[in-house]
Design a protein around this nucleic acid. Sequence first.
RNA 1: GGCCUUGUGGUCAAGCGGUUAAGACGGAGCCCUCUCAAGGCUCAAUCCCGGGUUCGAUUCCCGGCAGGGUCACCA
Length: 548
Amino acid sequence: MDYIKLANALIPDNNLLPLEEYEKAYPERQLEKGAEVTRLAPSPTGFIHLGNLYSALADERIAHTTGGIFYLRIEDTDLKRKVDGAVESVIRSLNYFGLNFDEGAEIDSPLNKYGPYYQRRRASIYRAYVKNLIERGLAYPCFCTEDRLNAVREQQTASKEITGYYGKYARCRNLSEKEIYENLQDGKPFVIRLKSQGDTQNKITFKDAIKGDITVTENDQDVVILKSDGIPTYHFAHAVDDHFMHTTLVIRGEEWLSSLPIHLELFKVLGFKLPKYGHTCSLMKVDNGVKRKLSKRKDPELSLDYYRSAGYYPKAVVKYLMTILNSNFEEWERKNPQSDYREFKFSIGKMGKSGALFDIDKLNDISKAELATLSAEETYEFLLGWVNEFGTEKDRQHFTRKEYIIKILNLICGIGGKKRRKDIVRAETGVRLMDYFFDDTFAPEYGYRFDGATVNSVLEGFSALYDENDDNSAWFAKVKQVASGNGFAAEMSDYKANPEAYKGSVADVAEILRIAVAGTPNSPDLCTVMGILGRVRTIERLNAGKII
RNA sequence: GGCCUUGUGGUCAAGCGGUUAAGACGGAGCCCUCUCAAGGCUCAAUCCCGGGUUCGAUUCCCGGCAGGGUCACCA
C-alpha cells in the first residue's frame, strides 16, 4: 500500500508544515530546574464545578510554588459542548477564588507563545501529525457507521468480550487499497484511527505522581484520533498540545486513568516525551445513602456559583480545598497563623489517594474562622459585595448606612472584646443576623416564658430606668434592680441556692428584655444592642413588646 | 461483567512491623456567662473480613468483601 498517496488523499490540506517547523515554533520553555508547567484544560461548557477548582488549585499551587507556569487551554473539540461566554466565566470564577493564569486563552500575557490555546484553532497541527502517522502506516481511515459500531458493541457485550475496535473487530484496518479509494470516491465519511501496535498481554507499570505505581495493560484499541469533522479527539489533542505547550505535569481527574494506555501509546508513536501525570481522586457526595462522585448534572448546588451566591468567603473555600488536597495543610496553618496559604509548601505527593466526601460542616467552620480574621471595615466590604449582587432591595438600602453597619459588625464580630465571635458563616447568614437592627426587617417573635403581668412589669420597669449613656456595668445593675423589683433573683448564686424562692433569675429578666428589643431570646451583648438602636427605638421596642 | 483503583472513629485523616493508634470537623458534657456565640477543659467513637509471613501485624503477602472509576467520532 502506498501510504504517502493515501495520506494525501485523506488529508489533502495544503497549509501543513513539515513537522520540524512545528517543533521550532514551540521551543522548550526557559524555566528554572524543578519548575512545573501545569494547565487547566476545560471544555467550554461554562459550568465550573467545585471539582474543577479542586484540581485547578493543585495545578496552580504546584506551578506557582515551583516557579513554573499555570496556563489555560480550552478543549473545544466537541462543538456540542460549547457555551457562549464560558471561557470568561472560567477565568472570572477562578480569579474570584484567587487563582490566576499566567498564560492561555483570553489571558492577556506576554507569555502567550504556545498558542493558539483553543484546540479548534490548532487543527492544522493535529492534521499534520495525523497525516504523518498515515504516511508511516500507523493510522488508517475507518468508514464504519455508528450503527455498525453499535451492533458490534452489542455483540461483544452479549458474548462477554471486551468491547471496542480492535483485533478482528477492526474491520477497516484491513481494507484493501481498492476498497479505501472506492469508499472515498463514494464520498463516505470517515474517521482516522490509530493502528495500535499494542498487546493487552503486556503489562506496564506506570508511576503516577499522586497514586503511585499503577499497573496497566498496553492499549490495543484502534481509537479514533481524527473525527469525521476533521477535528481530533481528546486523546490525540492531549498528546500534541501537552507536547508543544511543554506541560511537565498533567493533573487531571482519575476518570482518565483508564484511557492512560491510549495516551502512552500515542506519545510513543508520535515520538513525544511523556509528561508526568497526577490523577486526582474525585470529590464525593453521599446521595440516598450512596457515596458517589460529584456530578455536574446532578449537583448544581456544587457549582462554584453556588458558593458565591451563598456568600462563602472565597479564601475559605480555597482553604477548605487545601485541607483536602494536602492533609498537613491544617497543621501548618495552626503553626503559621499569620501566613498566607500561598506560603505553604504544597506537595503533590501528599495528595490523598481515595475520594473525599465533601464536608459542608468543615467548610462552614473554616469559613467562619476566616471571616473572623477580618476587620469590621473588611467585613463590611465583603458583605456589601454580596448584598449588591445577591441581597434584597432592603439589604441594599441598609448597606448605604455604612457607619451604622460597622457598629453592628463590631458587636456581632465581637471586635474590641476579649474574644472574637464567629457568628458569620457566610455573607448571606451574616446579613440576616443584622435584620433586627432595622425596623423594616425587625420581625420579633414574642415567645415569653412568663405571664403577661410579669413581662409588662419588667418591660415598664426597665424603660423607666434605661439610660443610653450607661456603661455595661451600670446597665446591668439596672437589670438587676428590675429583677429584684419583680421577684427575680438579682444574683445567679442566690437563685441557684434557692430557686423556689424566686420567679426566676436575672438571666430570665434579660431574656424578657432581649425578646422585646431583639425579637429573639438569643443575641450578642444586649446592652450594646440597645446602644446601637438608640434610646428612642429601644424604648419603642420595650413598649411594643408588652403583652396586651 | 472485564480492566484499573481505594478501604484507619459519623466526616477529613496522621501513622507504614512493637504507639496509651495523632490532629481537625461534627457529637456529648462541664466551666465561663444577661442569652447565644466564642473560648477553656473533658468524654464517646476507628484500623473491612479471613488466611498466611513474623516473637509480634493497622502496617508485608494472598484471598474474599465493600466502595469508586472506566469501557464513545464526550472531554
